[in-house]
Amino acid sequence: MRNSLLFLLVVLLLSGCIPRSRTDIPAFSGTLVDSISGVPLGGASINEQADPAAEGWTPQSLRTEDDGRFNYPALTSGTVYQLPAPGAGWPVSRTMIFHKEGYRDTTCRCTNMSLFGKENEAVIPLVRIDQSELSTEEPLLLHLSDSIVCQAFVGSQVLYQDTLYLIGEIYRQGQYDGNPLLLTLRSVPPNEGGIVLAVEDYRVQLAPPVQPAEE
């Protein structure tokens, strides 16, 4: 039996295939912070979802540590023999819903390919309710990294053409749901400098604040 397994392994290696663990639900870790000050937010509740949900998987509800940290390891199952290729497999996602008293509830989604086995970490900014005006449109999903997107609201800090702005308004051009969401951006600090109008959401990136240095 052992000789048969060794023979099979040699055949697979010679054919260019390599063994990989299949990722059913990607890893997702990071630090939850105030969107403006960068102060870590401890004690925030996190509820998770997955798409597709692995068989027998149970969502975990956690709270962030005192330093704002959270950690959800990847869920992997089985070994797949695959030709070397980046981003192979099919998309698997893990969605986190962050809740902290005094802040807007914020949903973030991490998406990887099932055979990529990538670690995912981000600084997740939450917007204070008193700094965020309600928009008539749904919040945007903007990129924090190549694999992580989070909701952005009026008052969220964003990067556009390498410059930091605040979202001033979220609206649609026309009355149809299929029309793209557009933004107005205010300079930071507000009311200093001009306003960029009609920026399509895919050209804007959510900007996590730099965490304050430890004393």
Rank of each mutant, 00 (worst) to 15 (best):
L181C: 07
I129D: 12
L181W: 04
M96L: 15
V92Y: 00
Q211K: 12
G193I: 05
Q151I: 03
Y103A: 01
N191M: 11
L142T: 04
S135M: 05
Y72L: 08
R94I: 08
E48V: 13
G43A: 09
F98A: 00
E121Y: 09
R104V: 05
L181G: 03
Q82C: 08
I124D: 01
S77G: 07
L206G: 01
P208H: 05
I170H: 01
Y72G: 02
T95F: 04
P209N: 02
L126M: 10
D66R: 15
E55L: 14
C150D: 04
L32G: 01
V33S: 06
D66F: 10
A50R: 01
G68Y: 00
F70Q: 02
G38N: 03
T58Q: 13
S61I: 09
I129V: 15
Y81C: 07
P91W: 05
A53V: 15
Q175W: 10
Q161K: 13
P73I: 09
V10Q: 12
G155E: 02
L183V: 03
D66E: 13
E200Y: 09
C150K: 01
I170N: 00
A27Y: 08
L185D: 00
V158A: 03
Y202N: 13
T95K: 09
P180N: 06
L144E: 05
M113H: 09
I46H: 00
G102I: 03
S77W: 06
S61N: 12
L13A: 11
A85M: 14
G30F: 02
R69P: 00
N112G: 02
P52R: 03
L185E: 01
Q151Y: 03
P125G: 06
R104K: 12
N3M: 12
L83E: 09
V210S: 14
R186Q: 14
N191A: 12
H99T: 14
I195D: 02
D201A: 15
D162R: 10
S93M: 05
F7C: 10
S187G: 15
E121Q: 15
V210K: 15
G78A: 11
W57S: 05
Y72M: 05
V199W: 04
R104H: 05
A54Y: 02
M96N: 10
A74N: 03
G168T: 04
Q173A: 13
R104I: 06
P86E: 07
L32P: 00
L140D: 02
L142Y: 03
D146L: 12
M113S: 15
S156Q: 02
R186A: 09
A198I: 04
V199D: 00
N120T: 08
Y81W: 15
L115N: 02
N47F: 09
I46Y: 01
G68N: 03
N120Y: 03
D67Y: 04
T107M: 09
T64I: 06
T136G: 10
S15Q: 08
S187Q: 12
L62R: 12
S156C: 04
A44N: 02
